[in-house]
Design a protein around this nucleic acid. Structure first.
Lengths: 145, 145
DNA sequence: TTGACTTTGTTGCATGTGCAATAAATGTTT
DNA sequence: AAACATTTATTGCACATGCAACAAAGTCAA
């Protein structure tokens, strides 16, 4: 009998990572959909706009781990909902200038405390293990791979 | 200026967890699709059948973090491909008995070494941080939440 | 046994996704 | 300038997904 014969999916690191992320994302997503009516892609765009100011679709794609088509569709939904505007960059007219509206800023002001609270709950649940988890995630997210 | 004004998505734990899992899963998925022609849901079913012997859709749903419809569809594709058979449980005819065929067993025998190698690569990349990451994942995956 | 309820697996439907193709703008080369 | 190549954002398409509805089988109470 080899190691492979004892292989247990629930001890397999890639599976465990994915299962944990799915659970967290699902709970987070439900909360945001119920309370604010937005999806995770939309949430990411809103938060990045708040953090970085006016940006293009390409900028978001690079910074927020989303395909450009996903960014584009999220931005369109946010524009329809009145949370952002789409302008044109005068020096390079291929580029969009995504900008939060006042309504969008107000939404982000309500979103962020909920996000911080959620993160705090996660860290509380993890206790002293939080530090190790975050260090591991940093290693996986670093670019040299 | 409050904490929220400095909010950076790339320091937000749920986002980081999800981004890391997405990267790993994508790489894993590409490798399995190219080399064996199967998806991650199919991979999970195969591996669980290998580990647990004959099981029903419900068993897989409970053990492998997949919706029953996802399990059902993965099982149908695997049956079409000749990797598993679907039988009926004689004592409860609502239940399926999913079973690996010889062809399926042969596939799993090829799959598992690749999976172990992939996990080893992850751990090598993480170095001494692997232990902390796994402990954190265990906390997030424990049921009491 | 009958009737109501539960469990199991499949499927229809609406939605989200990634990828490729595309159009428009810009950059580059001659 | 003209021709060609690259970049940016959108969209068509095929496919995967989650959820609800459903049928079939089983359970249970009267």
């Amino acid at each position: 009998m080899t190691d492979a014969d004892r292989f247990d999916l629930n001890e397999f690191l890639p599976y465990r990572l994915n299962a944990a992320a799915s659970r967290i994302s699902r709970a987070f997503s439900e909360r945001y959909r119920e309370e604010f009516g937005i999806s995770i892609p939309e949430w990411r765009v809103l938060v990045h706009l708040h953090h970085a100011g006016d940006v293009s679709v390409r900028d978001i794609e690079a910074r927020v781990d989303m395909e450009k088509s996903k960014v584009s569709r999220a931005a369109s939904r946010l524009e329809t909902a009145g949370y952002i505007t789409k302008g044109v960059n005068d020096t390079d007219r291929r580029l969009l200038v995504l900008r939060l509206t006042d309504k969008g800023e107000a939404l982000v002001a309500r979103l962020l405390p909920v996000a911080m609270e959620y993160q705090d709950e996660m860290r509380a649940r993890l206790g002293p293990l939080a530090e190790g988890l975050e260090a591991g995630l940093s290693a996986l997210l670093s670019d040299n791979a």
